[in-house]
Nucleic acid binder design. Structure first.
Lengths: 334, 334
DNA sequence: TTGAAAGCGGTACCAG
DNA sequence: CTGGTACCGCTTTCAA
């Protein structure tokens, strides 16, 4: 369907406004700078002319001149599950709320890698990492350029990086103890490839709790943090030696595993307990009622935005590593 | 936890590279401009020096000078459900793939409104609308500045706006006919407030199909496109006159309704059919097995990114309204 | 092929 | 309080 043909117009500049209002460009600049010396009547006249012409100060010029860019990149990775997408959405809102512009980079590794080189041409105030696999490389590139890096969801031991991360090991250790107290003895785990750093941490927490009780992991499966991969991993595990608890590195996989067990008619939690990590909204739905570990997104976002602000304010402040507390959410699958 | 204290360094400029390589700034600029006259040895020397110093051309200066900004804003709204978040994530990836930088604006209306005024200070190549409530105002502001607007998910009849939208009415009309053919006669609908434009369109499609069969809508409930609101709406409807089909304006609400009916022990689809719209990944899970209308995200993203490119290429091209085909997905709840 | 110089659109520092 | 002016860092003429 065709519609109106439009004309492309040149952007209105301060000079245009100055001419229209019969003042100098300096005056126009002052009219848009709070707390600057300018006759009140003149200021009003300028703002009126600006509004009439549709003038907005060009951010590029202001930034080039030395102003804040307010640009913050988010390296979001592929966002394969709802938790990652929720975090990304919440980060965007949180950054908007503190007056920053999140410039989001997502998609597969090749696209992201290509994007990185180019996005660094923009004067970023910070780079937020949520990707997983490319993190070290990105952090190195940023460090070279003096762009502050905030890694969330995985701890990067590099100078020039602030870290925000939930207590993966503690959370999963608590979960392990809960299962053991509930009488479970043969515990299987569904983790992820090395690029999912948190999977390794969570596994470690579980193993620690098991060891303390004189137990070891019964089986180890590899997932991909998606529902489908949890479904498949559970099927693989069922083909092996029996187990009475299935600990998944995240809720998406736990929900997938739950579905598989239901399909096979295996009673949960009577025969096998199934638990996850994150406490996504879905985990609370009656259809799943999943026992899990709460990984609070709001706290994460607050911590990250706070870190962004403090880092921008004091670029030389020491690096920080902030841990976010998690807590057991006992529902019906353990 | 404290760590290394870092130094904040000045950004490396073309002048620094020029000095290091013993050439003029012009030569440095040329070295980064494909297809420009420059001695090959000199170019190599410059690129080497640039790499050593960690130089990247400053995008702000290039843009100010007249270059492409590659900046595309996405007005994403609150993203209350997984479909919206999936679309946002896919749009981000799609834009990255064509070399654009999605600058995402999300969160509640107040935040978004405040953000709009400021983001227009950046030279945006396009503005993608997914918000719902603020769309007209945003489109007007953009039109005044000559920023192309691409509205997706809701048709805006305004000059200067390209529209991409799925065939909401057709899809829901097909669904209505499917239900009628299946013997359903008392059809209830769960829609949304006026800000959810698609809910009205989908309702219209359903009503059309019902009318053609000499039927009318049995009941009308208002949801908010979230799972919880579907759950609540279904509860409200059950308190009224009986019905044998429950059509929800999106999958999230359908899944909520499904949960409520299960909680109440009402057999689906034997006693009541439940259907949705969008075909989110979850709809296919065995736990829900939802009959729905497929609203293809990949096609949406391709269409939008294509439109962005064509609009940037030819700013004066006529406005377009592109409809995306949808299709019935028959599973187990109808 | 090269360097010098003129902007791009602001901001901030001048002297007035 | 005001207007003029020198930048910010890059691209792109222009003349050499």
């Amino acid at each position: 369907m065709a519609g109106t043909i439009r004309k492309s117009a040149r952007r209105v500049t301060a000079a245009d406004v100055a001419e229209a209002a019969g003042v100098s460009r300096s005056a126009v600049s002052r009219a848009f700078t709070p707390g600057s010396y300018l006759d009140d009547g003149k200021r009003r006249a300028i703002l009126r002319a600006a509004k009439r012409l549709g003038y907005r100060p060009n951010a590029m010029a202001a930034i080039l001149q030395g102003g804040a860019s307010d640009l913050v990149a988010i390296f979001a990775g592929e966002m394969p599950n709802d938790f990652d997408r929720e975090v990304a959405a919440a980060l965007v809102s949180g950054l908007n709320a503190i007056g920053k512009w999140p410039l989001v980079i997502g998609g597969d590794e090749a696209t992201a890698r290509r994007a990185l080189a180019n996005v660094l041409r923009y004067p970023l105030e910070a780079m937020i990492l949520r990707s997983g696999s490319l993190d070290e490389g990105v952090a190195k590139s940023c460090a070279k350029l003096g762009v502050p890096v905030i890694s969330s969801g995985r701890i990067l031991h590099m100078p020039g990086v602030d870290n925000v991360c939930c207590r993966n090991r503690d959370g999963m250790a608590d979960m392990g103890r809960l299962l053991i107290e509930g009488g479970r003895r043969r515990v299987a785990f569904v983790g992820g490839p090395e690029t999912f750093w948190s999977a390794g941490e969570r596994r470690l927490g579980l193993v620690t709790a098991l060891h303390a009780a004189g137990l070891t992991l019964s089986a180890d499966a590899m997932g991909a943090y998606t529902v489908q991969s949890g479904y498949d991993a559970a099927a693989d595990l069922l083909a092996g030696p029996p187990f009475d608890a299935l600990v998944c590195a995240n809720d998406a996989m736990a929900i997938g595993a739950l579905s598989l067990l239901r399909d096979r008619g295996i009673p949960v939690p009577e025969q096998i307990a199934v638990v996850g990590f994150d406490d996504i909204a879905m985990a609370a739905w009656p259809a799943f009622n999943l026992t899990t570990v709460r990984n609070p997104i709001d706290t994460l976002v607050e911590t990250v935005t706070d870190l962004v602000q403090r880092r921008v304010e004091t670029p030389t402040k020491p690096d920080e590593t902030i841990a976010i507390d998690v807590s057991l959410v006992c529902r019906g699958t353990h």
